[in-house]
């Protein structure tokens, strides 16, 4: 059974999580050409190596970031999206204990 560490809820069974796709920069929808938009929608970083992905802890609806090797399935790091999208805030390092 594979365990994934949720930055909010701590280590949990992988079955509690939903994969949400790769983290990729979104072009401005009002300015992007159709081709740029198509590229954003359909293409991704699909080579073998460490990828950065969106995951959700399904029961709590909490979205976070996972850095994972897509061949060994080894998870390097999981963290709160604020670290990527709100560089001013302090990274969430301590997992918060969930109520039983």
């Amino acid at each position: 059974m594979k365990i994934l560490t949720c930055p909010l809820n701590g280590p949990r069974n992988i079955a509690e999580f939903t994969y949400g796709g790769q983290v990729k920069p979104m072009p401005n929808p009002t300015e992007a050409t159709d081709q740029e938009w198509a590229h954003y929608v359909f293409y991704g970083d699909n080579h073998i190596g460490v990828v950065r992905e969106w995951w959700m802890h399904t029961p709590s609806g909490y979205w976070f970031i996972v850095e994972r090797h897509n061949q060994t399935d080894e998870v390097m790091r999981t963290y709160d999206p604020a670290e990527l999208f709100d560089p001013g805030s302090s990274p969430a390092t301590e997992p918060v204990q969930a109520d039983p």
């Binding site: 059974m1 594979k2 992988i14 079955a15 939903t18 994969y19 699909n46 073998i48 990828v51 992905e53 897509n70 061949q71 060994t72 399935d73």
Partner: peptide, 13 residues
């Protein structure tokens, strides 16, 4: 599998 992987391991789930 529920998420991408370049691997051929099997999972119990």
């Amino acid at each position: 599998d529920p998420y991408p992987l370049y691997g051929t391991r099997s999972t119990l789930e």
